[in-house]
Write a protein that binds this DNA or RNA. Structure first.
Lengths: 180, 180
DNA sequence: ATTTATTTTTACCTTTGCTCAATAATTAAA
DNA sequence: TTTAATTATTGAGCAAAGGTAAAAATAAAT
């Protein structure tokens, strides 16, 4: 059985929404804060992180993307405003570029697209609720275990340093938590 | 100029999606965890909180609703599963009931509905990103200030006790933060 | 392969938000 | 209005997560 995201990817190809591809070296930025976002990135190879700079000028990770993921600065796309996130390649990463303009247009004109789009963003809302519940867990160990259970692949793909940041703790705390 | 939510409310009336109304006394539950959710609550009067029970059996607030808001257990509606949230009246609260079944049906069949629905849930995603950034702010004072700036009405409507919980801190810490 | 840089682990110390407790202030109930 | 119950404030002590620093382990670069 095909997932909504798989169906959506098939539609992206059929309707020629893929307008190019790009390769980023490790640490290169797909998008920087302040940039206007023209593309969704469909990751063919590599991995990416999304982070923002907080009030103390520190980087704060909010999302990771791996092979097969559609990755972008969502708020920027939805609100038509400059990105508040940085998207950065964690290793050499190849992406296919989906035109935001064409995507928005076809979501408005094509019934099939709009319905599947609804399913996809509704699912995104659900994932964000889970993320909120994770972040509201005070005990670092429980926070770690919750995320490990739901996203085990995260811990395969991403370095502990970045996971610790994502989990709102220091690398030292994560290291201790994993031992105990 | 009419907001998407206002337009949506107008459509709810025109298409007779309001199938009843209910009044809840202070502390009564609109929905309990485990319940199947049949309705969206359009709040006419009063205020409501959404919370879940965490691993330590404590209540954890995740959302508040006031007059005019559409309020429900979103994940339950989107995933067709029992609610993981409790929705509880914080004072005597009157709501109009929107049929989830009818809403889902009309979103699939009516172009106008589906397009405005897309706008509404895309906006919801953006709000959740902001919430995530709030929760990732480590310093309680900054966390308080961020939310106060973006949702000043929250501090009018809701008691400090519940706000503190929502902000991931104790009432004592919130009290001290407000003084300083 | 060797060097350089980065990440992870460990120990010790510091800070800060939480618990507990007592009081004051508000709100609800009789 | 008076009483009861809940909520908000303040202080003191403590536990736990974070900071610092140094060593060990990986990974990257030459």
């Amino acid at each position: 059985m095909m997932s909504d995201v798989d169906t959506f990817k098939k539609l992206l190809i059929e309707h020629q929404l893929i307008v190019g591809e790009r390769t980023f070296l490790k640490d290169e930025f797909l998008i920087k804060a302040g940039d206007v976002v023209y593309f969704l990135n469909w990751i063919e190879k590599g991995s990416v992180r999304a982070f923002f700079i907080n009030e103390k000028e520190e980087e704060q990770n909010v999302r990771f993307g791996y092979i097969g993921d559609l990755f972008t600065s969502v708020k920027s796309v939805f609100l038509n405003q400059p990105s508040d996130l940085y998207l950065q390649a964690l290793k050499k990463t190849k992406v296919h570029l989906i035109s935001v303009e064409k995507l928005k247009s076809i979501i408005q004109s094509n019934e099939v697209f709009s319905q599947i789009w609804i399913n996809i963003i509704q699912y995104l809302v659900c994932q964000q609720m889970d993320r909120e519940m994770d972040l509201l867990t005070n005990d670092p160990k429980l926070r770690y275990e919750r995320v490990l259970e739901r996203s085990p692949q995260l811990f395969q793909e991403i370095s502990s340093k970045h996971i610790a940041n994502y989990l709102r703790m220091t690398p030292e705390t994560l290291s201790r938590v994993r031992k105990s």
